[in-house]
Each structure stands twice: as structure tokens, then as C-alpha cells.
Design a protein around this nucleic acid. Structure first.
Lengths: 189, 189, 189, 189
DNA sequence: AATGAATGAGACTTCATTCAT
DNA sequence: AATGAATGAAGTCTCATTCAT
């Protein structure tokens, strides 16, 4: 028997790229098959449907970031160092796998409703850190959801301008420091 | 003779709502017809295609905001007052027509590539104000695209958390002051 | 606007014929479309699915026979005359529209489970007549379901041999008398 | 070396059951494999195709009954005793292996066209007995095909009402006497 | 003899669009 | 201007069969 693992990974990589380039609905199963050099039916050996493939890709990437942010949360001491490490990690994810990151960014409005509250979740990790910081007096009190949204906004919109509108040319890594500083100002740390 | 203007507006309102609820691709011409209570072919009396309808809705709303922001830019004196008025206007647009605002927010990645550089454009207005402010010494120097992105990010992500993730419950109008303050801190005004 | 009634009837007649010739599953929507000279999508304007088309054809024909049998039941006086008229009607249906009759015969095992008990039903009409005849003393007592099944068996199997195995060459009309007589003997009238 | 006979029988038993439950076309090779607990490709070690499997099952069961009926035909003396023994055997087959019997019953219209005239065949055996009985003066003269069809109809439809419509609850064995009597009346013995 | 990954033809269905009315 | 029946291209998915292991 042949080993299907490689094929599955090939499908995932190919689909991820096409989903980002053209959108999920606009990418056909045939597109994926031709690009990956496999038969159309092969996708269905590994995923129940195109929708399921899109969801698996999303859930995988999204929860992986959530998990890593949680572990940073635990390993750092102060709100300031936690946030700095988390934001830098966030930026590094984009640098390392910008296709996956862009996919998560673009697909989130469609896929987020399928996320269960139990799943690790980047937004919740940021809010948890901010909440804790406010409880400890490290951050001036404010609405935690509003604060977390603003911080996420600063980070995400810079990345958005980098990839989608292409108005920013610098690498995100080189901007990480600037982003961290802006987020700390937003929180008044 | 019958008045087509009413039908056209009915189509626009209906389509806008469905596009936001289900996505453009996921909304069918039949969906629009049934919801609007018209025949399937009627849409084509007013728009060349579904895509054209989606684009007209986008361009209309997007440039309207851009134009108003430009006029605020001209009528206010300092970077601070300009930005405050612009952000408050932005928030008020959402309050007045949240469906249109959400549509612009969600459709922007698909539609922005069709925008010509000449068209009035919210992002460019914000950047222009920030640029001018830095030239005049009202705002500490920084990359104008990065700065504009961050400001847009703070605003948009709060609205995002209000409408899409429903994590924020307060009205956006009531948060306008908080948003303005955060944006000014981001810019170090 | 065009009148779809004709098209719907064309689809029904075409499908009925193909379903009988090749079986429902073995008949493709494309078969129907090509044979009827219409587009594949047109079928879906008139029927929700191929399965639905098959069901509508069945229910229509099956209940029509049931209704007519019921009316014969009411208009005739004795068990003997009722049964004779009913069997002759049954045979005449086959002569008049052998395609529909054959379809009902072949599709019954697949479709009968969808029939609701309320719907007019040939089998139940025969059983009702037999039951009544036994109550009135016109027919010697026996299990009504067994008796009704036997009567149906005599009739149906002759038709089966006529159409499907083609072992019988005479017209069913010319055999009606023989069939009636055999059924009466089965019931010991 | 592994014993393929067991696997072949497992496939046959499993397929037979599924064919009856869902129909041949509606049963997939995968269905059979999963239910039998074997790999998808294994069926092709024992049968050339799914169609071939369906045919082998049919031919096996159908000719077995035909052979046994022929031997009863030879071992009994009169038309009456022949028919009685044949009908009782027919009913006993159903009792002993109702799944196979139901399969033969349901699949006959699809498979009968593949039967060669040489093969042992229940219908032909019944007709032969009836024919012989008429030649010998044991049975009043009538069209042998019509007579044979009626006899088969009485038997089969009772079984049909037992298994498929479930209108009859008694065991077929307990009804054998009633069925025999009805068949003799049909033939006017 | 058995496995199960891979194939690819083809099935059903959807849907933007056209067109006769 | 409006209708809605009809179109047909294209999409998703199924499934009998093949083949490398």
C-alpha cells in the first residue's frame, strides 16, 4: 500500500496557496487537483469536502498560534514582556509562513463561527494577558475587549497593508519593534 | 411608465443585506430576487451582472466616505482636530448604516483591486492628514503608511469585534472617544 | 413569459419511458434531457431532483388507480361485480398506458415506503372489497391480507409475463376474463 | 497460504444482504468492503466486477431452485402431488434463506435477461408440470404460460406481502397449505 | 491473497445569464 | 420595465476499478 501522508500534505499546501490567491469559493477542486498534479477524486480520500479542507487548514493554523501564545503567556513574567514576546511571535509567524498567516487573516470571518470556545484562540490569549495586567495594576484599567481589539487591530492592519494593499514594503520582522511600542502606548503601559 | 428607480433601490438594499449575511459569492441572483420579491431577470435591467452590482455598492459607499473625510480634512485646522473629526465621522457612518459599513469592511479585499488611484479613499485621507501633521511638526515623524495602518487598525478592529465576533456590546458611538484617544497615543500626539 | 406546462409534461413522459427501459438509477438526468431535447438544467425548474421526479410519477399514477378502484367499489353492488369491474379496470389501465403501468409495477418496491397510509392505494381497495364480501357472507372467510395478496398476484404476474419476460403474447384485455375467473376461484366465490 | 474461500463466502453473504437492503446499484463496493471488514480491492480477487458478483449470486440461487424443482417433478407422480411438493419446497426455501429468496425476487427483472434458456429455471419447471398435467388430463386445458404465471403470482405475491410490504405477519411455512390450495383452485384441479 | 491510495469518468446539481412574452 | 422559463457551463462529489506494495 502507498503512503498517503505525502499526498495529504501536498493537497494542504496547494489548497492553502490557492485559497489565499483566489479565495475559497473561487478555488475549485479541479484547480487544487491540477495544481497539485493529482486526480480530482484524490482530495476526497483525505478530506470529506472542500469546505472540510478549508476548515481543517484554518483550525490547525489558528489553534497552533493560540497554543503558542498561551505558552508565552505562562513563561513570561510581566504584562509588558508577555505582550512584547507575543507580538514578536505573531510577527514571526507571518515571516515564517506568510501564506498560512494570510489565509487565517482572510478566512477568519467565514471560519470563526465554527470555532468552539474551548479551542486555543489568539484573541483570547491577548485579552487574558491584558486582563491580568490590569488586575495586577501593570496596565491602566479599561474595557478588556476594547483594549484587546485595539492591540490586535494595530498588529493586523500593518500586516494587512503589507500583504494585501502592498502599501508597506518593509518586512514585518523589521517593524515588530514599532508595532510593540504602538501597542504599549495604546494600553498606556 | 413604471418607475425603475424604486426597484433599483430595492435591489440594492436587498443585495447589500444578503451580501453581508452570506457573502457575495454565496448569495445567488435568485436569493436576491426572492428576498426582494421580484423576478430573477429583473436585476439585469438595472445592473450588468451580479459582480457589477457588488462593485457599484462598494464603490458608492467607499468613495462617499472618502469624499466626506477629505472635506473634513479641509475644514479642520490641526492634525488633532482633523483626526478626531474624521474618526468620529467614521464611527457615525457605522452607526447610521451598519449594513453598508460592514459590507465595505468585508468586501474590501475583493473589491479594492478595482479601485482606481483617483477615487476618494478613506485610507489615503487618513494618511494625508498624518503626513501633513508630521510635516508641520504636529506629529512625531514615522513611516506614514505604518502610522496610517495602525490608526485604521485601531478603529476597524473595534468595529470588527462589535459586529462580527460580537465581543464588544457597547455602541460604537459611545466608544468613539476612547478610539480617538487610542489613535492619538499611537501617533504620539 | 413562456408556458412551462408543456415542458413539464414532456419531461414526465420522457422520464417515464426511460425509467422503465433502463431503471431509475440507470437513467441519468442527461439521458432525460437529451431524449426530451431540453437542457439538463431545465428538469430542475420542474422537479427538485431526479428522485423527486421519480416519486411524483409514481405517486400520481398509483393514487389515480387507487381512486378509480375506490369509485368502482362504491358504484357496484356485490363482491363479485366489484371485483370483476376492478380487475377489468386494472387490465384496461395497462392496455391504455402500459408504460405507466409497468413503471408502477417495477418501481413499487422502491417507492412504496414513501406512500403515506392516507393515499389511495390499489392493494387496500382490493382488500376492502374482499373484507366487505366476507363480512356479508359473499366470500368464504379467510385472512384478508393473504386473500388480497393472492388476487393481486394472479393479476400482476400475468402482466409481468406479458411485459417483462414476454412469455405471454396475447393482449391483457383479451385475458381479462380468464384472470377474473381465476381470481374468483382463488376467493372461492 | 491464506484460504480465499472464506473471504469469498464472506463477500457473498455481505453483498447479498446489502443488495436486498439497498438495491444493487445503491450498494457500493465500499459498502460491501466496510461491512465485510475487508479492503476495497479485495472483492476483485474473487469477482471480476460488482456486476459479476450480483450475477453469480443470482444465477447460483436461481438455478439451485430450478434444479430442485426439476428433481421434485421427476420424483412425484401426479400433477397434484408435484405441485404441492414444489410449492412447499418454494416456501421452505424462503424460510431457510429469506435473504437469498428476497434477492432473487427483487433482482429478477434485472438479471433474467442474462439467463440462458438452458439454465434450470423455476418458472419453466412449474410450466412443465402444468403442461404435463394438462396433457395427461389431470388439469383442465388452458394456456400453459397464463396458468403458470398465475400460480407463480399467487405464491410470490404472498411472499411479497410478507417481506416487503409487511402486511402479512404469519410465517410463510404456516401459509404453505393455503397457498397450495389456492393454486390448485386456480388450475381447477 | 490482501491492502488501500489513487484514478478519472461521469453523476447530480447550481446558478449567472438570456430571451420570449 | 418586468417576468420567469430555459439554457449550459461549470462545480462538487461518487464510485467502480486499477495498481503499487
Amino acid at each position: 500500500m502507498r503512503d498517503g501522508t505525502k499526498t495529504k500534505e501536498l493537497i494542504e499546501r496547494t489548497a492553502l496557496r490557492l485559497f489565499v490567491e483566489k479565495g475559497i469559493t473561487e478555488t475549485t477542486v479541479r484547480d487544487i487537483a491540477i495544481t497539485a498534479g493529482i486526480a480530482e477524486g484524490t482530495m476526497y480520500r483525505h478530506f470529506a469536502s472542500k469546505e472540510d479542507l478549508a476548515w481543517e487548514l484554518f483550525a490547525e493554523g489558528y489553534t497552533a498560534i493560540g497554543r503558542e501564545l498561551r505558552s508565552i503567556h505562562k513563561s513570561e513574567a510581566t504584562a509588558r514582556t508577555k505582550l512584547e514576546a507575543m507580538i514578536r511571535y505573531f510577527c514571526s509567524v507571518f515571516e515564517k509562513d506568510s501564506v498560512m498567516f494570510t489565509y487565517l487573516f482572510l478566512a477568519r470571518h467565514q471560519q470563526l463561527k465554527k470555532l468552539t470556545p474551548r479551542m486555543p484562540n489568539p484573541y483570547l490569549e491577548f485579552r487574558a494577558v491584558i486582563n491580568e495586567g490590569m488586575r495586577r495594576g501593570e496596565i491602566p484599567k479599561k474595557d478588556p475587549d476594547v483594549a484587546a481589539s485595539m492591540v490586535m487591530g494595530v498588529i493586523l492592519q500593518v500586516i494587512d497593508s503589507r500583504i494585501l494593499s502592498q502599501r508597506i514594503r518593509q518586512s514585518i520582522a523589521s517593524l515588530a519593534g514599532v508595532i510593540v511600542a504602538a501597542c504599549l502606548r495604546v494600553l498606556e503601559i
